[in-house]
């Protein structure tokens, strides 16, 4: 008798992803899909998507979905959750969407302790528009708008979103995970599920930042990109739990 060790989650629609080879968006959809399956959430979920490469998350996850304007997903999700408090509401946002144009919305949703879950995909660049500098772009990292690399004296230092949100009183769960190797992927899977549970238990705002790669715009092959997350990105964005429900780490 064989059993499935891994198969595509039920709540990830059976269609090809439009993402580039080696891009982690699809993998993260998979982790969210597993959590939706395991918690039996698809019938009570409303997801809110970003503007950016993740915009088509509405095609990929088998739930009701809303396509928000750039950066405003936490406000849209707030509106949904306030209207329907017994539903499960998440946002899925990239670093251009959340950490640039959407800073106001994310900070205030977190400050209110809004009972929603935010999955924040940080790949340190604007992907959809072709690889421009994001607020999360590392100092020295080259982009199409920082051709000689990001200069700290000109463009400042990258925003560490988990650290910033961790200064607020109300968030219930803040964690940074990565998906560059199996051990981190398993941790990411657990954390996404935990964040979902956090909302289901009514504990308030849960936030999971996922370090992920953008080989195309990083001008790397997918394997080099994994290494860059491991060696460079995670040095500036430490992979750790910042806050867990019940006050534990």
């Amino acid at each position: 008798m064989t059993r499935k060790v891994y198969s595509r989650p039920q709540s990830v629609v059976d269609m090809p992803f439009h993402y580039c080879p080696g891009c982690h968006h699809g993998l993260i959809h998979g982790l969210m899909g597993e959590a939706l399956d395991e918690l039996d959430l698809t019938e009570k979920t409303i997801g809110v998507g970003p503007v950016g490469c993740g915009v088509f998350v509405y095609d990929y996850l088998d739930t009701d979905m809303i396509q928000a304007s750039h950066g405003r997903a936490p406000a849209v999700a707030t509106g949904v959750k306030r209207a329907l408090p017994d539903r499960f509401v998440f946002t899925y946002q990239g670093d251009g969407d959340l950490a640039a144009i959407g800073t106001s919305e994310i900070i205030h949703a977190a400050a209110r302790g809004e009972n929603i879950t935010v999955i924040f995909v940080n790949n340190a660049i604007f992907g959809m528009t072709g690889g421009q500098t994001a607020p999360t772009t590392l100092v020295g990292q080259t982009t199409t708008t920082a051709p000689i690399g990001r200069l700290e004296e000109v463009e400042g230092a990258p925003i560490q979103v988990c650290e910033m949100l961790n200064t607020l009183q109300k968030p219930a769960l803040i964690s940074r995970v990565s998906v560059h190797n199996p051990a981190n992927i398993m941790r990411a899977k657990k954390m996404i599920k935990k964040a979902f549970q956090c909302q289901l238990e009514g504990r308030g705002f849960s936030f999971v930042e996922v370090l992920s790669s953008c080989p195309t715009n990083w001008r790397m092959n997918p394997l080099q990109a994994l290494q860059w997350i491991e060696e460079t990105m995670s040095a500036y964005y430490p992979i750790k739990d910042f806050r867990m429900p019940e006050g534990g780490q």
Binding site: Y6, F17, N181, M186
Partner: peptide, 19 residues
Amino acid sequence: KGCAFCARMCPDLVIEVEK
């Protein structure tokens, strides 16, 4: 060995592992 690391790493969810 059926560890499914390959499937876990696949960003396009194209790998299925049975044991």
